[in-house]
Nucleic acid binder design. Structure first.
Lengths: 217, 217
DNA sequence: TAGATTGTTAATCGATTAACAATC
DNA sequence: TAGATTGTTAATCGATTAACAATC
């Protein structure tokens, strides 16, 4: 399968398609046209057909797309069937919330261990995931296959921990610290969850709307 | 101030500029050129100048931009000085983590109340924010100015609670439930934090890289 | 078969980049 | 002043939309 680099915009839409298809499945819909799917997601039918055709021919003329089949295609494109393994670093509030509430396995990822520095946490287990000492990080990573590191440490620890992860051969980080990890020398993949960026965007749009309403008067 | 709709791409970059400028301030840098800023953010100088000039003339030829002045301009554009007020609905793991750890005030937002259904939580207070009963939601919203609702309820509660919020006149929701709120009739502003979408994008890029490495052999 | 809907090519639109005169 | 760097216009590039022949 050789396709010249798919654009980031397309990649960001794929998980939305997946969620919508799961939702459709649950409601017992098992066939959908690009027109209807577009309606439900606020996208044009053209765009949807372009997006899918980037990866293959998943539809059928005159019929549309099979919901379950399309779902599996997209799951495969996203790597959900590759059995990726993750570890989580930093069992604070957000780390704890992820371990307890975020269903990694729903998205094809196995959370195999968590790490923290706090002695009172080490040895305990949450939702089936054991917390180990940060001292064991390197040895654990050398002995177990880990594809993704979930970074939920405090701001100050973000860069030093990242160094250690990279040194241990990790090449994908799911970053919840509000620190810019992107840019450094290494070619590690970084995916950021920046709460503040998200809130500020919302704040902008609220302001824009207020200004419009003000202007209308 | 009349500017024909600024594109979403630009808006999404503004919070990144803000963070970088704060970081520069802390390191004692108080002047920067579009060239250097571009280097640090992985953007072209052109793009940076285009982005800023969308909102005014913040720089000075031959000199560059004053870090603190530019920071204040961007903060203003994002509405950080408007004193927006927020309430949080659903004090589960993620809601609790936000109350305790996310510094709303750093981004110009005041978290004025939290709501939950659990009797054992009602009346308690976290990090200065009191938890009220969901029964009080409507009366609270009618008596207090609230601009943003932070939605951290379980999946099942997402839609019914959203209905109630909209009925009470809320027109901005910061959505942490993995439910698609966008699209319905109402013109409420929705900003999503979709953990799963983010993880799946990362999973895609990991897969892409593996495939490339495979192909190289 | 006739109607519907795909996959894909061509046209449009918008965003990014390059270039440069203005000017601090 | 001379050098540096902006703000902005023009050129390029890429992404979205439209159109339509292919076909189920």
């Amino acid at each position: 399968m050789k396709h010249s680099k798919v654009s980031n915009n397309v990649i960001r839409r794929l998980p939305r398609y997946l969620r919508k298809l799961d939702e459709l499945s649950e409601s017992g819909v098992n066939r959908i046209s690009s027109f209807d799917l577009g309606q439900q997601l606020g996208l044009t039918p053209s765009q949807i057909r372009q997006d899918f055709s980037r990866f293959g021919e998943f539809g059928q003329q005159g019929y549309g797309y099979s919901v379950p089949a399309l779902r599996e295609h997209i799951a495969g494109i996203l790597g959900m069937d590759r059995g990726y393994r993750a570890v989580l670093i930093g069992v604070g509030h957000i780390g704890h919330a992820l371990i307890d509430n975020f269903c990694f396995s729903d998205w094809g990822v196995k959370l195999s261990a968590a790490f923290d520095v706090k002695p009172e946490l080490i040895g305990s287990s949450f939702n089936g995931t054991a917390v180990r000492s940060m001292d064991e990080l390197e040895s654990y990573l050398s002995e177990n296959p880990v594809d993704i590191a979930v970074l939920t440490v405090p701001k100050d620890a973000a860069l030093p921990v990242t160094e250690r992860l990279i040194a241990s051969g990790i090449n994908a980080i799911w970053n919840f610290t509000n620190v810019e990890l992107t840019g450094p020398d290494s070619d590690v993949l970084v995916e950021n969850i920046h709460f503040s960026d998200s809130l500020l965007s919302l704040s902008y749009y609220v302001s824009e709307r207020r200004d419009e309403q003000q202007a209308d008067k």
